[in-house]
Structure formats: structure tokens, C-alpha cells
Nucleic acid binder design. Sequence first.
DNA 1: CTCCTTCCCTAACAAGTGTTTGGTAGATTA
DNA 2: TAATCTACCAAACACTTGTTAGGGAAGGAG
Lengths: 195, 195
Amino acid sequence: MRPSPERHGQLLATAAEVFAAEGYDATTVRRIADAAGMLAGSLYYHFDSKEAMLDEILSGFLDELREGYDAVLAAALGPRETLEALVTESFREIDRHRAAVAIYQKESRQLAAQPRFRHLADTQVHFEQAWLGTLERGVADGVFRDDLDIRLTYRFVRDTVWVAASWYRPGGLHRPEEIARQYLSVVLEGIAVPR
Amino acid sequence: MRPSPERHGQLLATAAEVFAAEGYDATTVRRIADAAGMLAGSLYYHFDSKEAMLDEILSGFLDELREGYDAVLAAALGPRETLEALVTESFREIDRHRAAVAIYQKESRQLAAQPRFRHLADTQVHFEQAWLGTLERGVADGVFRDDLDIRLTYRFVRDTVWVAASWYRPGGLHRPEEIARQYLSVVLEGIAVPR
DNA sequence: CTCCTTCCCTAACAAGTGTTTGGTAGATTA
DNA sequence: TAATCTACCAAACACTTGTTAGGGAAGGAG
């Protein structure tokens, strides 16, 4: 009746890996139980439902990301430095919560429509405000170009950051800070040699 | 026994919309039949299986995209112009096959592992070669920066282009050519004002 | 009118789904 | 030693899944 937090976390991590690898809907609880070395029913000693696992996985990541973003904004840096910090923070979160980010990236749109996952939509609005505000401030300050559709730019930045979770492998060739550096270099200066 | 091609295409388009909106695994054939105004079993007069629908939807899009890319490469333009043409062609395909692209973007990774969808992996290699080759040629010619990880840049370009399918709405504010223009402007020159 | 083709419905199938219930081995506590 | 708690198993539950088989209404062709 009172499962240990350690085991709880272990199983949650296992579930996250399977969800990320095979998709939430395509994943059966028996598949998760297999990966954890137990039977399907036994999972219900630790969790209320399959949905509850997903909820906990996403919330764990999103709460931490929100904290990270808020800390960046609280630092009150210039717009360019804020953008750099937001991007770097994002790639760090991808490094720490790769599976959760991959799941979020794939399922958030449909989940946000479900009543149970309404909080995803709220969180998205919060993040959007962080990015859009920074971009607008940058345009106003003259450090970002003013001839771009700012909403389109926001989507470009957001999407490219988060899709990285689909190919990023922790312990791989690139550290998150290095990816952030290269990514920022492209977004800020472009890939063309100035002519 | 010999369904008409028109009805076949209609139903395929309906299925594509539902797949794109709710995800392939989460979509039941009864849901598709509902959207088409018929019963689940009736679909099997037109299609062999749910998988066959998906296969046909993806192949229709991928074949056309492959033709488009090949035509661009055959034109033998400079690297920068080739990149511009590839991006523009991609956004045009998103405009024409929005649903198919959204499905492809979300499911291709897992599908490529299935034997039936092996051809997806082949196609991906083909596309990767088109992009990577263009980037490499550009670096060699001195029109693209040589201080970037070219593979990272490729992923950046690829992901941002295709992820647009998840928010793009045909008939919306932006025409595909306009999106391509703005996108290219960001990728080539960056969002920062040169200092 | 009759035959044939097209397109759909009705009704069911076996397999797989998330979940529940009752039980139990083994450690921990009293 | 006895009682309790933790973490799992065994077996089943109601329901949904993709799919199939047979039938029939509508319309054109002979």
C-alpha cells in the first residue's frame, strides 16, 4: 500500500524509456512490465494507471523546466544573453530528461486536448511567453532583426530545440553545452558566409 | 471487388486527416469509418488493412517529394541556390500533403523498424544525401561556414523544415513560399543584427 | 425483366487491451 | 515466535481492437 520512492522512480524511468521508444499508445502495460521484469498487474501496486505514469513522467520534466526558465528570466539579462541562456537550459533538460522530452514532443499536442492533461496547455503558454517576450525585447532593443515574423521565428527556435531530443543520445559525441553553442551560432549568425 | 479510384482517394484523404489529428496507433478503424460516414467493416471493401492505408498515404507523399528533390538536384544549381530550392520544395510539399507529412514526422522512426515499412529507411538515406551533399558542396565552395558540425547543421535544417507540418494550416496567414523565404532568411543570415 | 457490378451493412470473430481481486513469499517489526 | 508490511504473482474481468463473411440495396447493361 505504500511503495518505496526508489522503486517508484526506477519503474517510472523504465516506463519513460519504453514510451519514448515505441510511443505511448503503442506501448502496452505488459511491455513495460516485461522491461521491468515483472507482470502487468504488479505495476498497479506502484501506479494507479497507465495514464498516471505518463502524467508523472511529463510533470517531472515540465516542473523542472519551468524552474529553469524562471531562473533565467529572473537573472534579467539582455535579450541576446537571455536567448542564449534559454537555449542552453533547454539542451541541459534534454540531456537530463531525454525520454520525457521525446514523449512530450510527440504526444503533447493530443494530450493537451484531454481534460486530465489540461495543465500541459497552461505550461505551453508560459513557455511561449518566455520565448516570445525575449524575442520582442530583442527586436525593440535592436539586437534581433525586425524584418522577421516574430511568431514564425519563435516556432523555428522552439521546434529545433526540442526535436533534438529525438536524435540526442546522452554520453554521445556532443555535450549539451556544445550543441547549444553550435545551435545558437546557427540561429544567431546563420549558416551563410556573409558576402 | 473493383472500387473506384475517386472514392479510394477520398477515403484515403479522410484517413490521413484522422491519423494526423489523433495519431496512427490511437486511431481506430471505426473512427475513420465514422469520419467517412460508414461502418468499420465497409472500409475493407476499399483497403486490405489499416496498415495498407498508412502505407499508401506515406508513399504518395514520399514518391512526390523524391521526384521534387531529384528535379532540384538535376538543375545543377550552386549550393546556396540548391539549398533554397530544396527548402522551398519542402514547404510546397507540406502545403500539398500536410496530413501525410505530419504523420511521417511522428511515426517514421518507429515505422522504419518494421519490415513492411523498410522502404522508409531507404528514402530517408536518399533525402539525407541530398541535404548533406548540398551542405558539403557549399562549405567546399566557401558559401557556407566551415566552422559548423555539418551533421548537426543538417539535422537543424531538416527538423525545422518538417516540423512546420505540425502547425501549418493551408489557407492560413502564410503561403508556403513566404514561409520558405523567411525560414531561409533565418537559416542563412541568422536572427541577430550583425554588430 | 434479369444479371451483374458497386458499395455498403449486419453480425460476428479471435486476439489483445487496461485493470482488479485475492493470494503469498520474504523481510521487518514487536 | 507472532504479526505486519512490502512487493510481487496468478488468474481473471469487461471491453476494444482489426478483420472477415454473407447479404442486400441501387443502378446500369443485356
